[in-house]
Simulated assay, not measured.
Amino acid sequence: MNDSCPSCLARDIAPADTRTRGDRIVDGYQCPSCGHTWATVRDLTAYSELHARRAQRRTRKAA
């Protein structure tokens, strides 16, 4: 998942490194414009619940 630099606001920066830690994905970034580094963490359980709800809505419409 690409991100924007929180320092200089450069856009569409790809992760330099991605690691999985249990139910979380940690993406590390380094801005090519200013060199700022940061990390983001996504909780996969939150995303899987969202996708399950969407699948249920499609099922209800089909019924």
Results as ranks from 00 to 15, higher is better:
residue 16 A to S: 12
residue 16 A to N: 09
residue 16 A to I: 05
residue 17 D to V: 04
residue 17 D to I: 03
residue 17 D to F: 11
residue 17 D to Y: 12
residue 18 T to N: 03
residue 18 T to G: 01
residue 19 R to I: 15
residue 19 R to F: 07
residue 19 R to V: 15
residue 20 T to D: 12
residue 20 T to R: 15
residue 21 R to W: 04
residue 21 R to M: 08
residue 21 R to V: 12
residue 21 R to L: 09
residue 22 G to N: 06
residue 22 G to A: 06
residue 22 G to S: 06
residue 22 G to I: 05
residue 23 D to C: 03
residue 23 D to M: 03
residue 23 D to V: 05
residue 23 D to S: 13
residue 25 I to R: 14
residue 25 I to Y: 03
residue 26 V to E: 15
residue 26 V to M: 09
residue 26 V to D: 09
residue 27 D to C: 08
residue 27 D to G: 02
residue 27 D to H: 14
residue 28 G to Q: 05
residue 28 G to Y: 09
residue 28 G to M: 01
residue 29 Y to R: 01
residue 29 Y to D: 02
residue 29 Y to G: 02
residue 29 Y to M: 02
residue 29 Y to Q: 01
residue 29 Y to A: 01
residue 29 Y to T: 01
residue 29 Y to K: 02
residue 29 Y to F: 15
residue 29 Y to P: 03
residue 30 Q to F: 00
residue 30 Q to R: 15
residue 31 C to S: 11
residue 31 C to R: 10
residue 31 C to A: 13
residue 32 P to E: 01
residue 32 P to T: 01
residue 32 P to W: 02
residue 33 S to C: 11
residue 33 S to G: 07
residue 33 S to K: 14
residue 33 S to V: 15
residue 33 S to N: 13
residue 33 S to P: 00
residue 34 C to I: 14
residue 34 C to P: 13
residue 34 C to V: 13
residue 35 G to M: 04
residue 35 G to T: 07
residue 35 G to R: 06
residue 35 G to F: 04
residue 36 H to R: 09
residue 36 H to I: 05
residue 36 H to K: 09
residue 36 H to W: 11
residue 37 T to K: 12
residue 37 T to I: 04
residue 37 T to R: 15
residue 37 T to N: 03
residue 37 T to V: 10
residue 38 W to N: 11
residue 39 A to R: 15
residue 40 T to P: 10
residue 40 T to Y: 10
residue 41 V to D: 09
residue 41 V to N: 08
residue 41 V to P: 03
residue 41 V to K: 06
residue 42 R to W: 03
residue 43 D to T: 07
residue 43 D to E: 08
residue 44 L to F: 00
residue 45 T to I: 07
residue 45 T to F: 08
residue 45 T to W: 07
residue 46 A to M: 09
residue 46 A to G: 10
residue 47 Y to D: 08
residue 47 Y to P: 00
residue 48 S to Q: 07
residue 48 S to T: 10
residue 48 S to A: 06
residue 48 S to H: 04
residue 48 S to D: 03
residue 48 S to P: 00
residue 48 S to Y: 02
residue 49 E to L: 09
residue 49 E to R: 14
residue 49 E to D: 12
residue 49 E to A: 15
residue 50 L to F: 13
residue 50 L to A: 10
residue 51 H to F: 07
residue 51 H to G: 00
residue 52 A to C: 04
residue 52 A to T: 11
residue 52 A to Y: 06
residue 52 A to Q: 15
residue 52 A to F: 07
residue 53 R to F: 05
residue 53 R to K: 15
residue 53 R to A: 14
residue 53 R to P: 03
residue 53 R to N: 10
residue 54 R to P: 00
residue 54 R to T: 03
residue 55 A to C: 01
residue 55 A to M: 08
residue 56 Q to M: 07
residue 56 Q to N: 06
residue 57 R to T: 05
residue 58 R to M: 11
residue 58 R to D: 08
residue 58 R to I: 09
residue 58 R to L: 14
residue 58 R to S: 07
residue 59 T to G: 01
residue 59 T to W: 01
